[in-house]
Design a protein around this nucleic acid. Structure first.
Length: 303
RNA sequence: GCGUCGGUCGGAUAGCGGCUAUUCCAGGAGACUGUAAAUCUCCCGCCCAAUGGGCAUCGGUGGUUCGAGUCCACCCCGGCGCA
């Protein structure tokens, strides 16, 4: 059976979360018509899955949820891993559950790669192999690339020879399957693999407006104790993992280690979040190209 | 005032007489098939009849030299030390 889902995507600070709640409550008036919707929200966010990362990830508060169930938030400890594969599995299950209850699954978030993975599928289906990954940390990047070329020339041609992470992942798949499966096999056109009927809402505010929203949100986050939150997370997971969590966690972590001044915090965070937003916009373009979804330039008053 | 260290492309930084002035950050354009807020690539003085070529450029002015960001002199500016 073809499940219907609503996907809300957009860059950071674009106001996705509150829009999702409105959609779930059926109060969206963007088209002028009152849509009687009763939905549950599935977060599509690679960082909000972690407990304790609240301020830095701009996690929605209980009040802001307004009684709408939210899924895939606070489901892991920060030191645990969570992958696109985990997400696809969890989201697939949740979509079934929510649909079975007669409700509309609403997927909202800024991890656009996860949307892509859910809708277009992840052909490999090979779990991470920590032991193998550790072993593959040893060889030089050149060597890793040579191995991929030797064992799967087709995939090698697609990969960046200098991107170790991707090379290691490719070798992980090759070790398990012999070769990396093709992205879009002839018998599985784009959009067919997921079997969902997708309605898109893409919120993509103009540059200047988004930058203002990012800065406003950052000042708010600092006022709400961002630095203390990062300090707690750092104590729990250590510096390496902290940096991996990215953005606020990485930058504030540098400050906590006295590698940067307090004055440089806000400007640097602002710059990094804008860089992030740009990467997200690149994904939106890709999603648009693949799904003919249209962007909505308007946005709700707050997020 | 004397001494001293320094003034390099938005910021920081390398450069110790020779051919394309280094690296990091910021900025811009992208990639992305299981770490994705991660990871990675390219561009980033000016101009052009541009898969190549031309002209600039290292605080200023002069000088030494076949050749100067690099050496010398003087000047301007900043830090430190001594007065």
């Amino acid at each position: 059976m073809v499940r219907q889902i609503l996907c809300i995507a957009g860059p950071t600070a674009s106001g996705k979360s509150s829009r999702a709640v409105e959609e779930a409550l059926g109060r969206s008036t963007s088209t002028g018509e009152a849509l009687a919707r009763d939905g549950e929200i599935i977060s599509v966010d690679s960082r909000q899955v972690y407990r304790g990362l609240d301020i830095g990830t701009e996690k929605i508060s209980a009040e802001e949820m307004r009684g709408v169930p939210h899924h895939l938030i606070d489901i892991r400890e920060p030191e645990e891993s969570y992958s696109a594969g985990d997400f696809v599995q969890d989201a697939t299950r949740l979509i079934e559950d929510i649909s079975a209850r007669g409700k509309l699954p609403i997927l909202v978030g800024g991890t656009h790669f996860y949307f892509n993975a859910l809708i277009n599928g992840l052909p490999a289906r090979v779990d991470a192999d920590p032991a193998l990954r550790k072993e593959l940390e040893q060889p030089s990047t050149e060597e890793l690339y040579a191995r991929v070329v030797e064992r799967d020339a087709r995939r090698a041609a697609e990969l960046d020879p200098l991107n170790r992470r991707r090379l290691i992942r490719a070798l992980e798949i090759i070790t398990s399957l012999g070769a990396v499966p093709q992205r879009y096999p002839k018998d599985c056109p784009i959009g067919q693999s997921c079997g969902y009927q997708v309605e898109w809402i893409v919120i993509d505010p103009p540059r200047e407006e988004l930058q203002e929203r990012i800065d406003a949100r950052l000042e708010q986050a600092l006022g709400r104790g961002l630095v203390d939150e990062v300090r707690r997370v750092r104590e729990a997971v250590g510096d390496t993992r902290l940096s991996e969590l990215g953005l606020e966690y990485k930058i504030v972590g540098e400050f906590l280690r006295n590698e940067r001044t307090e004055d440089s915090l806000l400007p640097m965070l602002s710059a990094k979040l804008w860089q992030y937003a740009r990467r997200q916009k690149a994904w939106l373009r890709k999603l648009r190209d693949e799904h003919t979804i249209s962007a909505e330039l308007s946005h709700p008053d707050r997020s």
